[in-house]
Design a protein around this nucleic acid. Structure first.
Lengths: 101, 101
DNA sequence: GGTGTTGTTCGATCGTTGTCGAACAAGGGT
DNA sequence: ACCCTTGTTCGACAACGATCGAACAACACC
């Protein structure tokens, strides 16, 4: 299967924002930002594995994550450098659970 | 009519992102960031005035804009200071039409 | 080869949302 | 008073998206 991990510059800004505008996906991104690489199954946020797979696909196709196979698992990691380069401040602004300014 | 302009801290991050995750609304925000205060009617992006009104409502209820009456018009402005304070880098990261990194 | 684990994909459901025309409301001008 | 301009609100409709269970695929391990 083709992973289909597009270049971030090829993804519309609205698609990146839409990918982040979901609570489950935001939790996944936060977990990735903290824990680095993680298996798909490690994200149990009260949704079925079908839904989880869907969310990971959305993040991947938005250019936010990369996935590589490792045995029966798949390891996901955040493309932090590229995102920070193209959208500086975006992840920092969004990653904190409660800004509490 | 109650304007219903919530405090930004009371709006979930996902709602702010969702408000920005639309092409028409992003164009509006960009126009506001450039031109300062503007009347609702000045945003003609190929949608009907009903749709435009809807988008301005979404932006307002996401805590991103403020609206004040001025004669028959309504002037809208971006709450830039507050957004920058709570989500530093968000608008900067999103406002450029083509990042071209 | 068979079994178990891990993800993906399919089809269906159901809520959300972007869009429009039409009706309505509020002001300003003449 | 009348009309025009400016926005909002009200259905209605179509498209999208989040969710699930079930079926399928790939791999490891015994």
């Amino acid at each position: 299967m083709e992973p289909h991990e597009p270049d971030l510059t090829a993804v519309p800004v609205t698609a990146v924002l839409a990918a982040l505008a979901d609570d489950v996906r935001l939790q996944i991104v936060r977990a990735l930002a903290e824990g680095g690489e993680a298996a798909c199954g490690s994200f149990d946020f009260g949704v079925s594995k079908a839904t989880r797979s869907h969310h990971l696909k959305v993040l991947r196709e938005a250019g936010l994550t990369r996935t590589r196979a490792a045995g029966t698992s798949r390891l996901v990691r955040l493309r932090r450098d590229e995102v920070d380069k193209l959208y500086p401040g975006l992840l920092d602004a969004v990653l904190t659970p409660r800004p509490a300014a």
